[in-house]
Amino acid sequence: MRPTSASFGTKAKSVMRHRATWIGCAMLAIVAPHLLPAATMGALDLLRGPTAFIDPSEMAQDNFPGSAFFYAEGAFDPAPGTTVAQSSKVLALSNGPAAIAAPFRGLTAVDQYRATNCLTSAIYYEAGNEPDDGQRAVAQVVLNRVRHPAWPNSVCGVVYQGSERADTKCQFTFSCDGAMARMPNSASWARARRIATEALAGAVYAPVGLATHYHTLAVHPAWASSLTPVAVVGAHIFYRWQGMNGTARAFSVRYSGRELQAGPSPRVFVPTQGVVPPIAPIIALPSPFSSPAMQEAAPAEALPQSTIRPEFRNSGRPLPDKSTRKI
C-alpha cells in the first residue's frame, strides 16, 4: 500500500518538532548560564525585600580607585581588644625588599630635635587620622627618600622640599598649602611624634618596602602608572621606582645628620613678565614742566591736563564768606 500525502505530512511535522526541540535545548544550554546568576540575584532581592541594604561597591558613583578594598565587610572595624590607632588594613600588591634597619642620628642635639619635629609634621599632616601602621608607612617613605640620591639627604630637606613654591606643587602639600597654620591636636601630635621617634631610632615598616611615593585612594595622579605599586595601607597606596632606582642598591646615600632648616622655606614669588602692576608707584619721575620757568615757557596745550571731572574740581576749596554771598 502506497503512503498517502497525509502520512508524508504527518512525518514531516514530527521531524520539524524534533528539530525545534533540539534547537531549543541547544539555545537553553547557551543562555542558561547567563540567566541563572541574574535569576538568583533577583530571587535574593525579593527575599531581602524593597528596603534591603545595597552594597556601596555596587554603585558606580560611590566608587574610586581601590574602593573595593575598603568596602569589604568590617574593613574599618578594629580587631577585638585593640583601639582604632592600633588597628590597620594592609593589602600587599607586590613583593620587594624592605629598607635597611639603621638609625638616623643627628650630628648635634639640635639636628636630632629638628629631624624629629620635621618627621612628626609629615606624619601628622599627611596621616594624622590614620592608624599607627598608616603613620609608620608615611614615615618610612620620608626616610627612604633620605637614602635615595634623587632627594635631599636630610629629613627636613625631604619633608620641606619645594615648600618655597607659591603654586602648591611642593613634595608634601601640607608644607605649602597653608595646612600648618592650623594648631595641631596635642594628643594626635604626641602619637605622631612617638611614631617619628621610633622610625628615627631604626624601626622599619616592612610592608611598604622601598616605597618613595604614595597618594590617597580618592585620586589617581598621572605619575602613578610609571611606578610599581607596593601596598595599600589605610587610605594610601604606596609605590616604588621601577628598574634600578627601585632596588636596594639605589638606596645607598648616607644620612648627613645635619638639619639646616626647621620648617618650610620662605615663599618665592616670581612676577609674571609684561604685567603692569595694579597700583601706580607713589614716587613718580619729575615732569619736564615741573619748574615754574618751564611752565611759563611751555605752551598751554603742552601742560599736563587735569583728569578730575569738572563737577569735582572745586572740591576742597573754602566756601565763600556769607557776607559777600549774593542773595
Rank of each mutant, 00 (worst) to 15 (best):
S7Y: 09
S7F: 06
K11C: 14
T21G: 13
G24L: 05
A26V: 11
P33E: 02
P37M: 02
M41W: 07
G42H: 00
L44H: 05
R48C: 11
A52C: 08
I54D: 09
Q61W: 12
D62Y: 09
D62C: 10
P65T: 05
Y71H: 12
A72M: 12
E73D: 12
A75F: 15
T83S: 15
V84F: 13
L93Y: 02
L93H: 01
L93R: 02
S94R: 06
S94M: 06
N95I: 00
A101Y: 09
T108A: 12
T108S: 14
N117C: 09
L119C: 07
T120R: 02
Y124G: 01
Y125H: 08
A127C: 08
A127F: 03
N129P: 10
E130A: 14
G134C: 07
R136Q: 14
A137M: 00
A139L: 03
Q140P: 10
N144T: 01
N153F: 00
V155I: 09
V155G: 01
C156D: 05
Y160G: 03
S163M: 01
T173N: 06
C176T: 00
M180E: 12
M180W: 03
M183L: 14
R194W: 06
A196M: 05
E198R: 15
A199D: 07
P207S: 05
V208P: 03
T212I: 13
H213A: 12
Y214P: 13
T216E: 09
L217C: 13
A224I: 01
T228D: 07
V230N: 03
I237L: 02
Y239H: 04
M244H: 04
R249C: 08
R249F: 10
S252T: 01
V253W: 02
Y255S: 11
Y255T: 15
S256A: 03
G257E: 07
A262H: 13
G263A: 07
P266E: 05
R267G: 11
T272K: 09
G274V: 04
V275E: 11
P277V: 07
P278E: 09
P278M: 02
P278F: 04
I279T: 14
L285M: 07
P286Y: 04
P292K: 13
P299R: 12
E301S: 12
L303I: 04
Q305S: 10
S306V: 02
T307Q: 13
I308Q: 03
R309L: 10
E311D: 15
S315L: 12
P318K: 00
S323P: 03
S323N: 14
T324M: 06
